[in-house]
Design a protein around this nucleic acid. Sequence first.
DNA 1: TCAAAAGTGTTTGCGGTACACCCATGT
DNA 2: ACATGGGTGTACCGCAAACACTTTTGA
Lengths: 228, 228
Amino acid sequence: MKIQNTKQKNNLIIGPAVAVDTLIFTIRNNDLMILLIKIKDGPYKNKWALPGGLVQIDETLDMAAKRVLRKKAGVKGVYLEQLYTFGDLNRDKRGRIISVAYFALLNSDKLKLKTLEDFYSDIAWKNINSLPPLAFDHKKIINYGLERLKRKMEYTNVVYGFLPQEFTLTEMQKVYETVWNKKLDKRNFRKQVQKLGIIEPTGKTRHSERNRPAKLYRFKDRKLIFTK
Amino acid sequence: MKIQNTKQKNNLIIGPAVAVDTLIFTIRNNDLMILLIKIKDGPYKNKWALPGGLVQIDETLDMAAKRVLRKKAGVKGVYLEQLYTFGDLNRDKRGRIISVAYFALLNSDKLKLKTLEDFYSDIAWKNINSLPPLAFDHKKIINYGLERLKRKMEYTNVVYGFLPQEFTLTEMQKVYETVWNKKLDKRNFRKQVQKLGIIEPTGKTRHSERNRPAKLYRFKDRKLIFTK
DNA sequence: TCAAAAGTGTTTGCGGTACACCCATGT
DNA sequence: ACATGGGTGTACCGCAAACACTTTTGA
């Protein structure tokens, strides 16, 4: 990359600004939810938007995304990956802002840490299937992220982002069914998952109300693995 | 995305600058090549780098990438997709620059238009397997792009980017073999490709020196299709 | 007739899919 | 004993992989 047609002095640049926007997904009651923030004023007043912020001069993109996660969702140590960078000219009416989109997956462990919507009226988990009117090009970004998520769950173990340390196979199956929006065969699902060798039994069981206890499993490695 | 901690007046922003860097691939003599530019001065003097440029205030990211392709490689209308955005703090010693990487695929039709290396001593096609010392984090970017390319050729028809309008099945197979760096079975390859239904015979044949003529094929659609 | 690349089918094994019943528990 | 979700095996089909010979052409 060669610098040309530019002036850079004390980090003063003539050019687009850079922001990160984060798609924070979780699953609650067998629904795929995304964390959104209501905009209070300006041209997008009363619309909802992805949590985001401008990238500071002394932070990387990943750092910026993690900062947003911490400040807006009160979580850290969750699954996070860069999604895509959106740079249309009029995606933000207020100025030329390029958005580097990230997506994060939260599990119920993380959710318990802080239930933000109890404290703020302008931040809320929204069902992915009934989104409110969105600001900017955030509808497009969410659609893009959803496709990535669906695809990635086919050929990686990224599902662990949605699951707590210990979980039952039925819970795991329900995550897939929720994201893919289709029923899976219980026997085939269990065979396939077990064959991949990415999870192991903890030896413990979970006793629900009045049913047979379910065996608990954990991921051998809570990091991204390609399974195909 | 909410603006905060920022000052924006007449597009004057305090923050990182944004550039695009393009991985321009082609295949020549059964080798995967990438177009690089030699840096003339500054801290990266005599190192090689990806063609790139700063994103102007009035152009989208795609426009910037296409501009680079046109100016540096003299081509247009080639396969182009956004790869990833690199934003480490010290990726460019000269200042805080975020790079949106793209990758492009050229076929021999396009190559004929302009053989740049005949005109410039500081621009050259380099074999992907014997790269010169690279500036910035461009080695990392190239590796990332290579992985994307290899994977994407498994589940899409993106190979068309490397192929001219008309081509033989052997030529097509050689593209795969070159990128994946392994031999494929001729009979299985032909069966699979034909079954996908993404190409069709043109009816014409190509007569090489002294062998049996090969049937020529074309892609039904020269746009990205998912085949799996 | 020879050299060189084009072109073509069959067999086998594995992975994915379809499908139904018994088990353990609490009430 | 019953209701509820947990847990298991087999049969079939289609796709992928392995594998070798014939055809067409120009010299």
